[in-house]
């Protein structure tokens, strides 16, 4: 039991850190014929004061997409075939970064194609 205690404590710390992180999500708008349309939304909680949205064709090199984000928001027509993430900063300290998501060029509605 004594051996397991650090693991339990580390897990609690990890859960706390994860719970504080904001999220970026790809969400379906509607199904038109066989095609599913998507938008990108985000929500907190956020530790960072200033947040901006970045996108890229690689998951390792990023361009600015939109700045001074509200705590909750969305973009309805994201650029397709791109990775997205939100970077958050307080002053010069950019410590908060969401997990990345990917927006495909086209997606079928569920059951629309075999």
């Amino acid at each position: 039991m004594r051996r397991k205690l650090p693991i339990v404590l580390a897990s609690l710390v990890l859960v706390t850190v994860m719970a504080e992180a904001g999220q970026l999500v790809r969400e379906p708008i509607s199904c038109l014929g066989p095609s599913q349309l998507y938008f990108v939304s985000w929500f907190g909680p956020w530790k960072a004061g200033v947040k901006w949205l970045e996108y890229g064709v690689n998951a390792t090199s990023w361009d600015w997409y939109s700045g001074f984000l509200e705590d909750v928001g969305c973009i309805s027509s994201p650029e397709l075939n791109r990775y997205y993430r939100i970077m958050g900063c307080r002053g010069n300290n950019c410590s908060q970064q969401t997990a990345s998501i990917y927006v495909p060029s086209w997606a079928p509605c569920e059951g629309a194609i075999p």
Binding site: V25, A59, T60, R85, S100, I101, E110
Partner: peptide
């Protein structure tokens, strides 16, 4: 996740299976 921890890419677990497979 990347091997270096530089990035993490989400698999949208509430999406249909074909979208999860794509992710």
């Amino acid at each position: 996740r990347s091997s270096t921890g530089d990035w993490e890419l989400v698999v949208h677990k509430d999406a249909p299976l074909h979208m999860q497979n794509l992710d």
